[in-house]
Amino acid sequence: MEQGAQDAPSASGQAMPQGNMPAAGGEISQDQLTKLDMNKDGAVGREEYDQAMSAAFKNLDKNSDNTLTAEEVGTILTPEQFAAVDANKDGKISHDEMTSQVGNDFAAADTNKDGQLK
């Protein structure tokens, strides 16, 4: 899901690699993994990934309605990616839809199934 989007500060103020918001199977660059590795142990666990994606969601949700519109995600997702994540096709990405996609993205990126991205 790498779109070349610039990093933006998360709700916690740390830069969040927004190119890793729900992607439908995109690869994660080493630079993005380094940013996601909050405990700096050289790997990104599922909990770290989930926390980072939730923070990115919150940062993007400008009106705090717990959904993301195409306008809120801007160029982070292509229209096709947005549509793929919008499971109920209501024109918004709910936190639940994002969480589901994030889980799928993590599982796809965890090729050795050890629960960590390296």
Rank of each mutant, 00 (worst) to 15 (best):
S12N: 08
D7Q: 12
N104R: 14
I93V: 14
N88Q: 13
M38N: 05
A23T: 04
L117N: 02
E72I: 03
S29Q: 03
A84K: 07
D41S: 02
E27I: 15
E71T: 13
P79V: 08
A55H: 14
Q30F: 15
L33I: 01
A83Y: 03
V44K: 04
G74M: 08
V102L: 12
M38W: 01
N104W: 08
E97G: 11
D114Q: 06
A5T: 06
N112I: 11
K40E: 09
S54D: 13
F57D: 02
Q32P: 03
M38F: 08
R46C: 14
A24L: 09
L33H: 02
T111K: 15
Q51Y: 10
G13A: 11
A55S: 13
N88R: 09
K118S: 09
N104F: 13
D110L: 07
L36K: 01
K92N: 03
S29I: 09
N66S: 14
E72N: 03
G4Q: 06
V73N: 00
A15R: 14
A70G: 09
S29D: 12
E27A: 14
T111V: 11
Q30R: 15
A52K: 00
V73P: 00
G26K: 01
A5P: 00
N66P: 08
G115V: 11
A108H: 13
K92G: 04
A70R: 09
D114G: 00
I93P: 00
D110M: 10
R46G: 09
S94M: 08
M21H: 03
I76F: 04
A83Q: 07
D65M: 12
D96N: 13
